[in-house]
Amino acid sequence: MNKAKSLFIVFFLLLINLSLLHVATLSWHSPLGAGWMGVFVLALPNFYLFVWMFMGRRARTSRNLHLLMATNLMGIALVLTDPAMEANPWPLVLGNLIFFSSIAYIFWYSHLGERNNVQLKEGEKLPAFELKTLEGTRFSSEQLKGAAWLLIFYRGNWCPLCMTQIREVAGRYIELDRLGVKVALISPQPETKTQDLAKRFKVPMAFFVDVDFKTSKKLNLVADNGVPFGLKWFGHGEHTVLPTVLIINKHGRIVYSDQTSNYRVRPEPDQFLEVARQKLAVTEA
């Protein structure tokens, strides 16, 4: 299933970009009919969604993207009411491809499956695991004890929402630090990619590499073939991790767990701060 998703997202991005380019070329020579205008109305909002995510404004969207759904319906309505449909079926073909691909993106591609990892439930002890530091040394989860930690398992540098989420946390680092919470960022991506990411931030967050997915496998967080097709040729590999956020107290017990079932739905930094104020104060007592 994930292999199909890795191919689908590349197809979808190519489809909306090439459709917009084709419509722009047509509009340069003559006014657009209802069908091609419908293709434009379908492609542009989908294109803007990805641009918006890559711009890093927020690390989350609504679950069902209602505004996008509304524009999709407007666009396909224009395509289906085109009086020139019989003479030129291409707007109908492209319009339907974009419409159903967008629906698939919202309700299928974005969905990570129902997640109910009992190992990572609130109140449980964090299972033991090992990671690698950027200095090349081994780091045991036992070394987390003695301090509260915000642990973020992120997919990789290629994921715009992951990068925005990390940027949001970095922006609230001082508030977390005042509450006694350290930040650890964990990814199975190649070490060089994590080193590149660490250089972007001036706050003392800890970056770790999950070598060979040893920790991800132990915690049941592996997303096989979760990297979009083709990115492995740019050094990103094929597999990744399910985006997950945990907060543990100084005894290694989980006091907050976000196992999102939709990669576009991420917790707000204010949630981390509220947990730190309320639950850590109680559990540390």
Rank of each mutant, 00 (worst) to 15 (best):
S141K: 05
S141E: 01
E142P: 03
Q143N: 07
Q143D: 10
L144K: 10
L144E: 09
K145S: 00
K145G: 03
K145A: 08
G146N: 10
G146A: 03
A147F: 13
A148W: 04
A148M: 10
A148T: 06
A148K: 05
W149G: 00
W149N: 06
L150F: 00
L150H: 02
L150V: 09
L151T: 11
I152C: 06
F153V: 14
F153L: 13
F153T: 02
Y154L: 12
G156T: 05
N157M: 07
W158A: 00
C159V: 04
P160T: 08
P160K: 07
P160R: 04
L161C: 12
C162A: 13
C162N: 08
M163N: 00
T164R: 05
Q165A: 01
Q165M: 02
I166A: 11
I166T: 03
I166N: 09
I166K: 01
R167I: 11
R167P: 07
E168K: 04
V169T: 05
V169D: 06
A170D: 11
A170R: 00
A170L: 13
A170H: 10
G171T: 08
G171Q: 10
G171S: 04
G171A: 00
R172C: 09
R172Y: 15
Y173M: 13
I174R: 14
I174K: 11
I174D: 04
E175L: 08
E175M: 12
L176G: 00
L179Y: 05
L179F: 03
L179H: 06
G180A: 15
G180D: 15
G180Q: 14
V181Q: 05
V181L: 08
K182W: 05
K182A: 11
V183D: 02
V183A: 15
V183T: 13
V183H: 02
V183Y: 11
A184D: 10
A184T: 04
L185K: 07
L185C: 02
L185I: 01
I186E: 03
I186Q: 02
S187E: 09
P188F: 12
P188W: 05
P188C: 11
P190N: 11
E191F: 13
T192K: 12
T192Q: 15
T192A: 15
T192C: 14
K193F: 00
Q195V: 03
Q195C: 01
Q195L: 12
D196R: 14
D196G: 05
L197S: 04
A198V: 09
A198D: 10
K199Y: 04
R200P: 13
F201A: 09
F201L: 07
K202I: 14
K202P: 03
K202C: 12
V203D: 06
V203S: 07
P204C: 11
P204F: 01
F207N: 04
F207S: 03
F207Q: 03
F207W: 01
F208Q: 01
F208R: 12
V209F: 01
D210Q: 12
D210N: 11
V211Y: 02
V211F: 05
V211N: 05
V211D: 05
D212L: 03
F213V: 07
K214M: 00
K214W: 07
K214V: 07
T215P: 12
T215W: 03
K217L: 14
